[in-house]
């Protein structure tokens, strides 16, 4: 059992190979809506990660107790409970961030990444790997959001984390912090990630073929 789950592999999958946003294309609504700045993206990502870890934990813990017929209802109750709790905590301790994310915090309830991980992972796996899955997928979501938020904030406002980095002569391309900019940037990011994945796949294949050829060649030489 212990060899079946590897945290390193889970993290790699969450961040890159199976990134919830850039590869699985889940959770597009918050991804497009809140990434007008890096701070918002980070806040949203971490809030969703916290919910994901908690819900994966509880759902995995109760997985043998929840009847199959009402599992989705049970998941939604659990997820919405944690979202409300996180919302209250943010309102209490990260009030400014709460102000700028506003409506999108309660909408974490319907973020399909969380329900997807509950159904696909937490309901079938033990508690510890489920928590790890929450961490990995949450970090992947946060990573994608921060990437998107950084590009959009840099081009659309000339700032990063609210600090001017492009100088006062840069005329911000407002398009990028408006909704069309979100679609454009996300499309380009997904294309870039796909390209990198394909290149890596090709390299792996080529390496395999090379190895095969080498062993064949070696065999032929021996015969000769």
């Amino acid at each position: 059992m212990s060899t079946k789950y590897s945290f390193g592999k889970q993290i790699r999958e969450g961040l890159f190979e199976n990134n919830p946003v850039l590869v699985q294309l889940l959770g597009m609504c918050p991804t497009l809506a809140v990434t007008t700045s890096i701070t918002n993206a980070l806040g949203m990502g971490l809030a969703a990660t916290a919910v994901l870890i908690c819900s994966n934990f509880l759902i995995s813990l109760l997985r043998k107790f929840i009847p199959k017929q009402v599992r989705i209802a049970a998941y939604i109750v659990i997820i919405s409970g944690f979202v409300t709790a996180i919302e209250l905590l943010m309102k209490a301790y990260f009030y400014d961030l709460y102000g700028s994310l506003g409506l999108f915090i309660p909408l974490i309830v319907v973020n399909c990444i969380i329900l997807a991980r509950a159904e696909a992972f937490a309901s079938r796996n033990p508690v510890i790997p489920s928590i790890m899955d929450g961490v990995a997928m949450g970090l992947g979501f946060t990573f994608a959001l921060v990437l998107l938020g950084a590009v959009r904030e840099l081009l659309g406002a000339g700032t990063l984390f609210g600090f001017a980095v492009l100088g006062s002569r840069y005329q911000p391309a407002l398009l990028f912090i408006q909704p069309p900019g979100a679609f454009l940037t996300l499309g380009l990011l997904i294309a870039a990630v796909q390209k990198i994945r394909n290149v890596m796949k090709d390299k792996k294949k080529a390496a395999k073929q090379n190895a095969q050829k080498k062993s064949e060649n070696a065999g032929e030489e021996e015969q000769a």
């Binding site: 009402v70 109750v77 409300t84």
Partner: peptide, 21 residues
């Protein structure tokens, strides 16, 4: 009954957090 129990548990968690915050 199970669904009610889960809902009650979650309601408890939320009300606790509400009280704290």
């Amino acid at each position: 009954l199970v669904l009610t129990l889960i809902s009650a548990l979650i309601a408890g968690v939320v009300s606790l957090v509400n009280q704290l915050t």
